[in-house]
Simulated scan of single mutants.
Amino acid sequence: MTLFHFGNCFALAYFPYFITYKCSGLSEYNAFWRCVQAGATYLCVQLCKMLFLATFFPTWEGGAGVYDFVGEFMKATVDLADLLGLHLVMSRNAGKGEYKIMVAAMGWATAELIMSRCIPLWVGARGIEFDWKYVQMSFDSNISLVHYIAMAAGVWMFTRYDLPKSFRLPVTVLLGLCVYKAFLMELFVHVFLLGSWTVLLVKAVLTGSISLCSLFLFVTLVHSN
């Protein structure tokens, strides 16, 4: 039964990545090593972010139950480095915009999946007692994949020299939502005391909304050119 639960969690977490890689056409371009390079860039960016946070943002020493709004907001602002990292990955890859976006997003999301969820799933989901949090973790990994695709698309649009002025504000707002999404989720949880499944649902709805808006802007921009 333990292997059954582990297999389900593993499939929920990793299989959508495999399907995305195959169906997006990346396999036809032999983009595997490009995605690996994007993942390596992710690791470098996260290391720099950790060093920056450890240096300039010490541990919060406020009272229990007190939310450090300013501190958490400033920490979330450091995630702007992800935008720079995605732009660096896409600038080093030649090809159409769709190819650049998918390479950067797949490499970025897969690296995050391996670094933040692989060990907990491998150790926890194989435990004797089943826990729904590992299923939630698997669903959350799929949400992260959609999130990074939308973020990469936003970065690609924002850095285009021929981006119309009417697109500049919507794309900037979308990038801001991508960067501060985790901060907004933590704030909602603290204010409304949301449960784990509710948090997952809200995150899925918010990510889906951002992704649909990003897709609309991307399609409109490509067809207008």
Rank of each mutant, 00 (worst) to 15 (best):
91 S>E: 13
138 S>R: 08
208 G>E: 04
135 V>I: 15
1 M>F: 12
88 L>W: 13
45 V>Q: 10
137 M>E: 05
92 R>K: 12
194 L>Y: 10
185 M>I: 13
18 F>G: 14
35 C>S: 05
102 M>P: 06
12 L>A: 07
87 H>N: 14
6 F>A: 08
54 A>T: 05
14 Y>L: 15
186 E>S: 14
88 L>D: 05
160 R>D: 02
3 L>A: 07
171 V>L: 02
133 K>N: 13
223 H>C: 01
103 V>W: 07
143 I>H: 00
56 F>N: 06
133 K>Q: 15
74 M>V: 10
86 L>D: 07
132 W>T: 12
13 A>I: 04
222 V>I: 15
214 S>C: 03
172 T>Q: 03
205 V>F: 09
211 S>K: 05
14 Y>R: 01
5 H>Y: 14
188 F>I: 03
133 K>R: 15
5 H>F: 15
173 V>G: 07
183 F>M: 06
222 V>F: 09
188 F>L: 15
25 G>A: 01
211 S>L: 08
207 T>S: 01
155 V>S: 00
40 A>C: 13
75 K>F: 06
43 L>Q: 04
1 M>D: 13
10 F>D: 08
195 G>H: 04
25 G>N: 04
9 C>Q: 02
204 A>R: 00
203 K>P: 07
24 S>T: 10
160 R>A: 08
92 R>Y: 02
49 K>Y: 02
80 L>K: 01
146 V>D: 03
201 L>K: 05
154 G>V: 10
190 H>Y: 10
64 A>T: 14
179 V>K: 11
135 V>R: 06
195 G>I: 06
129 E>G: 00
174 L>M: 12
52 F>M: 14
61 E>L: 12
207 T>F: 01
191 V>Q: 13
101 I>S: 09
117 R>T: 11
93 N>M: 07
12 L>N: 04
216 F>V: 10
52 F>L: 15
8 N>G: 11
205 V>S: 06
103 V>M: 05
161 Y>K: 15
76 A>H: 08
57 F>S: 04
219 V>G: 00
150 A>L: 00
54 A>H: 11
49 K>E: 13
189 V>C: 12
95 G>K: 00
33 W>D: 08
39 G>E: 02
102 M>W: 01
191 V>P: 03
204 A>N: 06
3 L>M: 10
154 G>F: 09
133 K>L: 12
219 V>D: 09
4 F>H: 11
106 M>F: 05
171 V>D: 04
28 E>M: 00
112 E>W: 06
180 Y>F: 15
76 A>P: 03
216 F>G: 10
102 M>Y: 10
98 E>Q: 07
79 D>G: 01
213 C>Y: 00
218 F>C: 09
222 V>N: 11
6 F>N: 05
115 M>Q: 11
150 A>Y: 01
157 M>H: 03
220 T>P: 08
186 E>W: 00
75 K>M: 11
168 R>L: 09
126 R>C: 05
21 Y>H: 05
173 V>T: 12
130 F>D: 08
143 I>T: 03
139 F>H: 09
161 Y>M: 14
24 S>M: 04
96 K>V: 03
28 E>I: 09
133 K>T: 14
146 V>W: 04
198 T>K: 10
188 F>T: 07
36 V>K: 03
88 L>V: 12
